[in-house]
Structure formats: C-alpha cells, structure tokens
C-alpha cells in the first residue's frame, strides 16, 4: 500500500485528468501515473515582469519551458507549455532519478513495465464519454412502433393533440398565478377558501380601480418594474411587485447558548423565493389588521389589505421598517453565517 502522507504531498501538485491523454493511456498507466506537473510559471511569466523582483525570485525556468525554448532555437517542436508535462515524461530515461522518486511512483514504475503476455486487446476500461457517443444500434422493431417526430401524432384524434409539455396554469386547480394562489391561501381563515378567494378578487379589483401609486424614491422597489401608471392595468403584477419588494432575503435563526454565557447566537439563514414571499405577506396582513377601519363593510378586511399593498408600493407602510431592521440584524451578524453546531456541545 502507498504511504498516505507521500500520496497527499504528491497529489498537491497534480492536475486533473486532461481530455487528451493519448500518450498516457497508451502506456496503460494507473490514475496516479497520469498526474501532471503544472507549469505554473507558464501563465504567470507575462505578468511576472511587471512585478518588482526580489533578490531570490529569479530562479531557473521549468524543465518544459527550458525544453520549449531550446526547441524554438533548434526549430524543433518542443513540448506544449500550456498543457503541462507529465512527471513520467520528465523522468523518462533518467535512471538516476528513480531513487529520488516518491515510493508510490517507484512501486508504480516497477508494475508498469510492459507485460510479458501476448494479449492482443486492451483491458483498459472504456471512457464514459466514448460510450455516450456510440451510435445507437438499429432496432428490430417495425418503424411504426418507434415514436418519431416525422410521424403525425394526431392520427385518429379529431382536434389534434395538445403540444407537450402543457403550459403552466392549465390545470384547473392551479390555474391562478402562483403568487395569487399563495396569497389566497395565506388570506384564508378557518379553512374557508372561497371566502379567501372572494377577498382576493376584491383586493385585485381594488388595485385595478385605485389611483396609480406615487412611488417614494427612498423606498426602492424591485428593479425593472413598470412605471406606476401601468400597474393598475396588471393587478397581479402590482401585488407581486409589492410582495417581492419587501420580501426579506434572510431570516434570523437563534441558536440557544451558542454565543457563550447562555446567550443565543443570531444566525442569518437565506430564504427561498416562496419563503420570502410568505414572510412579506404575513407582514402585510399583520399591518393590515392594525389599520383603523373605515366604517364597517362586508369586505373590510380585504379593503385593509388592499390599502396596505398600495401603502407598501408607495413606501408608506410600516413593513419597510420591519424589513430594514431584519436586514440590519442580519448584516451585523453576518459572521455567524457558517456556524455549525459542535458535536457534543449543548
């Protein structure tokens, strides 16, 4: 077995496998043997001249670079500097270097002597990429049974077949915009979905008929939104804009006792889009509940929510303050982002 320490030091200078390894493959080497030594100076040689030189920075060039320079003088084709040179090529034919090689390579060298047998075929595993590009074998099935784009799919169908995949929102139960669906279910109380849907339709028609919002430059909305006078014509976008503009990017997770002294450590955790929207809607609903009523009507709650949505877009809502506060906490605790609970610690 190879010494793990030596192995580790060896792989530190290793390059990933190159796609073009014809020479290496022809030698039928094990994975270790095709590692290459990176000619690190090749890429940094141009920019190195600009740097101020220290007393001992002017060292000898790499063997491959030296060989390339020699080949240029003599007019031969030297090694490709961009590719790097396999270690095996460097030590090839240099018996005196054999003793100085790491033990893995010494063992490897003895095992990679050409085999004495007369096997006429290669036993090297075929690479996956080659397999994938193999032409498919012709099928013995009759052509009518093989699905093909040339055959009309709609034979025997009176109105033709729908183009697949079906566009989103064609399913009866998911026909609404995703955000409308999410907000509707968040509006729902006591499992009364149809009441929630009624409220949602009230909110959307209020957004459609209310005067266009006056934007507040101090409260920037999501970038790339349409101008405010166009918003009432697309109430779903109006609602989406309000929700996405105040959706927080993170939540704060409190890890008990992790800050030392029994104090909780506040860890910012990123949220997915749906989670962000949910938080934004919950904030809007909470703010709407606190609004003063304008004389009771049947749709008073929906009226309050609709007013709050407009207030969010106009930057008047208290939800903005809430969001900014959360982001401030998250930024001040940003060093805790990678925190993982230590095993064995409570």
């Amino acid at each position: 077995m190879a010494n793990p320490r030596i192995f580790r030091s060896f792989t530190a200078i290793a390059l990933p496998i190159r796609p073009q390894t014809a020479r290496c493959a022809s030698q039928r080497l094990a994975p270790v043997s095709i590692q290459c030594r990176r000619s690190t100076r090749a890429s940094s040689s141009n920019s190195g001249e600009k740097r101020p030189k220290g007393p001992d920075t002017d060292s000898l060039p790499h063997v491959s670079e030296e060989a390339a320079a020699t080949a240029k003088i003599t007019g031969d084709k030297g090694p490709d500097i961009q590719q790097g040179t396999p270690v095996q090529e460097v030590i090839k034919g240099k018996k005196e270097l054999h003793d100085k090689l790491p033990k893995v390579m010494q063992d490897e060298k003895s095992s990679t002597e050409p085999p004495s047998g007369t096997r006429s075929f290669s036993t090297v595993a075929r690479r996956q990429e080659d397999l994938q590009t193999l032409p498919s074998t012709p099928s013995s099935l009759p052509p009518t049974l093989i699905p093909s784009s040339s055959l009309p799919l709609s034979t025997g169908v009176k109105f033709g077949t729908p183009t697949l995949p079906l566009p989103p929102q064609t399913h009866l139960k998911h026909r609404d915009d995703p955000i409308v669906q999410q907000v509707t279910t968040l509006l729902m109380r006591h499992g009364k979905l149809s009441v929630a849907q009624h409220n949602m339709s009230f909110i959307l028609s209020h957004l459609r008929t209310a005067p266009p919002p006056k934007l507040n430059p101090a409260r920037p909305l999501v970038a790339g939104h349409p101008p405010p006078h166009q918003l009432p014509l697309d109430p779903v976008m109006y609602l989406t804009l309000a929700i996405d503009s105040i959706g927080p990017l993170v939540r704060i997770r409190s890890q008990k006792g992790a800050a030392g002294g029994g104090q909780a450590l506040q860890i910012p955790v990123p949220l997915r889009q749906r989670q962000r929207r949910r938080q934004a809607v919950m904030w809007i609903l909470a703010a709407a509940e606190k609004r003063a009523g304008k004389g009771g009507t049947k749709n008073m709650f929906a009226q309050k929510v609709a007013d709050e949505v407009v207030a969010v877009v106009e930057g008047r809502s208290s939800v903005w303050e809430r969001r900014n506060q959360l982001h401030r906490i998250a930024v001040s605790n940003r060093s805790n982002v990678g925190y993982k609970k230590q095993p064995g610690r409570r």
Partner: peptide, 19 residues
Amino acid sequence: DGGRRPAVGERKAQRTRVV
C-alpha cells in the same frame, strides 16, 4: 380597532355604491 363606528346608513351606502 381604533376606527370610528360607521354612521347610520353609511354601510349600506358603501355596499350599494355604483361606480
């Protein structure tokens, strides 16, 4: 809820308002 109570007939007026 902090809001003023609706006046007599105000709710109906709001409910039946035609825009």
